[in-house]
């Protein structure tokens, strides 16, 4: 039988991978993807705690995960369109070269 511990360890590993990607990559799209991975790790935690928690029939963990997935989808759409707008302006998606806020 799987214990809750194995799911929590897996999700913290996914969180760390996403954090490493968000900190080390220079492409803005890949940084956004790293943040999505960290959100996914949190969702996995919600589902694991729902499954092993005291009152699974209330469905709170599932509801929180559904809303969290919707917010992450909205965030990805807006984030990618901001990256596209910035690329059209400065012709690069490299975060080290995006160092100006002037339009």
């Amino acid at each position: 039988m799987n214990s809750l511990q194995s799911y929590l360890l897996l999700s913290s590993l996914l969180f760390s991978i996403g954090l490493a990607g968000a900190l080390t990559r220079r492409n803005a799209i890949l940084v956004l993807i790293g943040i999505e991975l960290m959100l996914n790790a949190a969702n996995l935690n919600f589902i694991a705690f729902w499954r092993y928690g005291p009152a699974p029939e209330v469905l709170t963990g599932i509801m929180f995960t559904i809303f969290s997935i919707s917010i992450a989808a909205a965030e990805a759409a807006v984030g990618l369109s901001i990256i596209l707008a910035a690329y059209r302006h400065s012709r690069t998606t490299d975060l080290d070269q995006m160092n100006s806020l002037k339009g």
Binding site: Y7, L10, E36, N40, N43, L44, I47, A48, W50, R51, G61, I62, T65, I66, I69, S70, A72, A73
Partner: peptide
Amino acid sequence: MLYLQLGAQFVGFTQILVY
């Protein structure tokens, strides 16, 4: 698939559709 294994079918299919 981990969601499916945990018994959250709806969330698993939502994950496939959305992500």
